[in-house]
Nucleic acid binder design. Structure first.
Lengths: 178, 178
DNA sequence: GAAATATGTCAATATGGCTGACGTAAATTT
DNA sequence: AAATTTACGTCAGCCATATTGACATATTTC
């Protein structure tokens, strides 16, 4: 006689009392892209954690990092353009930007031609912070590129550009060109 | 006579009253890796926004997405292993997981050999949700891969694997193998 | 039997997003 | 010149997701 008790069995969870859960994994047989989907998650997860130690020293978070980075990459950027890069609301940006201005990492200047604008510039302090934040990330990326041949490197860059929304690709190309 | 007023000048912000901000951008002359750093940001930004519409229909957030995804990819996963993938604390996972269990997307079963464990399985509902969430992402990745030749595709995958922390690469390789 | 392990839970807190409403100054349109 | 639009800021409240720290429980291991 078979075991009448409900003995749990990892290979056969349907044997238990209630409605059967699923034991078979979603695999790349069904979704061939799943490995790259997860690699993007894992790569990004580790990549963004690099600057955390530096940020903690300054009492800043990852939102501050993003603002400091793009202001340093685009001195004189308009608030609206920064919002478009980050894809957040002005209220969300507001707090973070105010802190960076108050602590002297970012400076605001009225636009010379359109004085409604408040153009954002890094201070010397802000530039130094941006350089400290990018350093571990650059090291990580450089180490990865070192292991690739030129064709593979081109593939990596090309792939990432194609993952970006088509509507934003030109803007991204311009931002990353300098 | 030169203009004695403080006329702002985008090309020369030092001309203004206070300490000079920096007008020169951080460029890839100084940091060659900066384009790839930003591409990782832009690609991830758009990539994770794909499932948002679906999530909203269910009243879930991105944290739920991550849990549903990895439980479907690894039915019977231990809580500790899921935490290791997500790199968050058990308290953070707790609420999200509880909601998914309460609403019938994930099921917990005691480990058959070690009954302290609560192994996580997707329900039929959970599997269906995972498939709906991955669909737009798979489409995006497939479209990108379509435009690459095999060597470039290998480069993209290889690059992402190398961006992962060395200590986690084996685990990531195992997770993405099936 | 004691210790270690796997997990859960309670509580407080921080961060970073959001919506909506309203205000102000400057530029543009009529 | 008045009206409208634009660029930006701010106030207020809310939500999602993360954190640390402490403690509880069941189970396994030594």
């Amino acid at each position: 006689m078979a075991d009448v008790n409900f003995v749990a069995d990892a290979s056969d969870p349907e044997a238990s009392s209630s409605a059967p859960p699923i034991a078979e994994p979603l695999t790349r047989e069904a979704i061939p892209e799943v490995a790259l989907i997860e690699l993007l998650f894992f790569a990004y997860r580790d990549f963004v954690s690099d600057p955390d130690a530096v940020l903690e020293d300054f009492g800043f978070g990852r939102a501050h990092h993003r603002v400091v980075h793009f202001v340093n990459r685009n001195p004189g950027i308009r608030v609206a353009d920064l919002l478009d890069i980050l894809k957040i609301t002005k209220q969300s940006l507001g707090r973070v930007l105010k802190e960076l201005v108050d602590t002297g990492f970012v400076e605001q200047r009225p636009g010379p031609v359109d004085r409604r604008q408040r153009l954002l510039y890094p201070t010397q302090k802000g530039r130094a912070l941006a350089e400290r934040l990018i350093e571990p990330q650059a090291r990580r990326i450089a180490a990865a590129l070192d292991a690739l041949d030129p064709k593979e490197r081109a593939g990596a860059e090309h792939f990432l550009r194609l993952v970006v929304d088509p509507a934003d690709r030109d803007a991204v190309a311009r931002l990353t060109a300098r």
